[in-house]
Write a protein that binds this DNA or RNA. Structure first.
Lengths: 332, 332
DNA sequence: ATGAAAGCGCTAACAT
DNA sequence: ATGTTAGCGCTTTCAT
């Protein structure tokens, strides 16, 4: 490995001068600068990151905590965040965490071992020790798609969005509406809450069993959820799925059962993942403003890190109902 | 940040002893070991990774180079690789690269700045400087889904698999078969090659224009490709799409045009991504053995790193044709 | 068994 | 403007 000393030696100057050149300080003789730059060029020298972050006590690296089974929404979100972070000069390091508490603890330990400038959570960690650490060390942090007291957060109004999704169904004349959600994370419960609220507001009677809660927000469990719904009571004309993946699985089962979507049963999803506009039928769904959210997440973190601003307010983004083919007017 | 010195001071011992305990050396008094362990426990001390990798000249970290627009196949693959690497005690750091050459250069520079134990390419880098660096420094490397002379690689026989995919179509009685592929990467050209070979072997005449090459392997471009195919000549009964995403877009256009899939046009994909078994119609496709490939990639790299073995042969995995609903016998 | 000291690659404070 | 020096947190000789 080629180091700063090698460059210094080759140039016949001190490491300090090379360092100055590398870091763009201006108190360096133009002649020497040029000479050093040339040597760097031809040797392909790049400063060692570990050494750099050790002296500087910062790494220009931010961590992103994300479920190891991240879904497509999360996948799109972190790509955008990554892109913005890069424009601010940060690198990214991922912490994939599984559902077990032990995995969250491992993640916390890794986090402690790294010299991070900040951290973004796209995954709702359950152990309090994690947030305690963040709060205690004052490590700049942003939570995305959920919130935690004392930490800046960015998300949409999940309940309101869900209510709107259900209202779309109600507006189409549906009265017998079910839901598939998950109980693993806050957003799943919030979306269910919004579902109940819409029904209540429309004077449509409902019971707890109107929602089936599945363990994961995947298409596989979307199938499971729809089968369960069908088993409980076939008498419904619309279903609200808490994520698009869930909706895709639900439609799959409908099709297998010879039930048409949307003619017999309308299905609405949530997230508007890429694939949703290509499948048959195209999915009606709630779109979260990925681009803006991603930008704001990166920007908020950057502000905290650079000490420009460190308020930890929640930033609530607006969503949009995207009407496509998977929902239609209720048969009368 | 709490350091090894803090622990040493609290224990009234030297940093060296703490280091020995942390690293499980056995030449430490049992009493003291216990005492130190306790302090570590209550303080939540974790050794700093940057400092560690600096002295050790290794980081227990491997880099994964992946397109920033990674598709679902790649996404599944790297999750599996990550899982295996973890069992070997490695951490992972991602290098997202875009299509531009400049992005590949940036990636190379970042790579140089990191103290990596090894690297995995799930993305076919184009600039030779990249491979030169790998070869010159002897950094343990594995390429996945493509190969490069002198570097260990893991992949399926793309051409043979494609030939088999097309043979499935031919076996179903199809004679007028088209293809949608991409020319961006070797695998796209290989898959097209397999397509031509199958046709040739079956004495079916073909022309270059039987394949439309699109810039990206996404559903969006699957739509584009199918539109182009329809424009050129509507007279075909089957299409081979080089990836499942492409197939999904292709089916979308068919549906929009009132052409039934598979009754009017059969469509076969490649990769067997998760979603393929949930969409309507379920996709007939070629499955790459993700699990085994992922394991072998991690294992091969680990062997190189630990010097157990450093041969750079290509490992070719077997694939499997998965027949589902998007293909059927040709109308006669 | 334990501690002191050197050094990994780098930057910044301090001299000059 | 440039070099010398100290030190970031850690591990590893080398003494003892």
């Amino acid at each position: 490995m080629i180091s700063i000393k090698d460059i210094a030696k080759q140039a016949g100057m001190s490491a300090a001068t090379v360092s100055r050149v590398v870091n763009g300080k201006n108190n360096v003789n133009a002649e020497k600068r040029k000479q050093i730059l040339e040597i760097i060029e031809e040797t392909g020298y790049v400063p060692n990151k570990a050494a750099r972050s050790m002296v500087l006590q910062r790494s220009f690296t931010v961590g992103i905590v994300i479920p190891d089974t991240f879904n497509m929404f999360q996948r799109q979100l972190f790509s955008i965040i990554e892109r913005y972070l890069e424009t601010f000069g940060y690198h990214t390091i991922f912490f994939f965490v599984q559902f077990e508490t032990s995995s969250e603890e491992t993640c916390l330990n890794r986090l402690k071992a790294e010299t991070l400038d900040g951290i973004i959570l796209i995954h709702e960690i359950k152990i309090p020790a994690f947030y305690d650490y963040l709060l205690r060390t004052g490590l700049p942090a942003v939570t995305a798609t959920f919130s935690y007291p004392g930490i800046a957060s960015i998300h949409v109004n999940e309940e309101q969005a869900s209510t709107d999704a259900v209202n779309h169904l109600i507006g189409l004349g549906h009265r017998k509406i079910k839901m598939i959600s998950g109980d693993g994370f806050t957003f799943g419960r919030q979306r269910a809450e919004g579902f109940f609220q819409a029904l209540t507001a429309a004077d449509i009677p409902w019971e707890e069993r109107s929602v089936v809660f599945v363990p994961h927000y995947t298409s596989e469990f979307g199938m499971y959820g729809m089968r369960e719904l069908l088993l409980r009571d076939r008498d419904f004309s619309a279903v609200f799925a808490a994520t698009d993946e869930l909706a895709i699985g639900a439609i799959r089962v409908l099709k297998d059962e010879g039930i048409r979507a949307p003619e017999d049963v309308s299905v609405i999803g949530f997230d508007d993942i890429d694939i949703s506009s290509y499948i048959v039928p195209r999915l009606t769904t709630i779109r979260q403003p990925l681009g803006e959210m991603g930008e704001q997440i990166a920007l908020t973190l950057h502000r905290h890190i650079s000490g420009m601003n460190s308020d930890t307010r929640q930033q609530v983004f607006s969503y949009r109902l995207i009407v496509r083919e998977s929902t239609c007017a209720a048969a009368r």
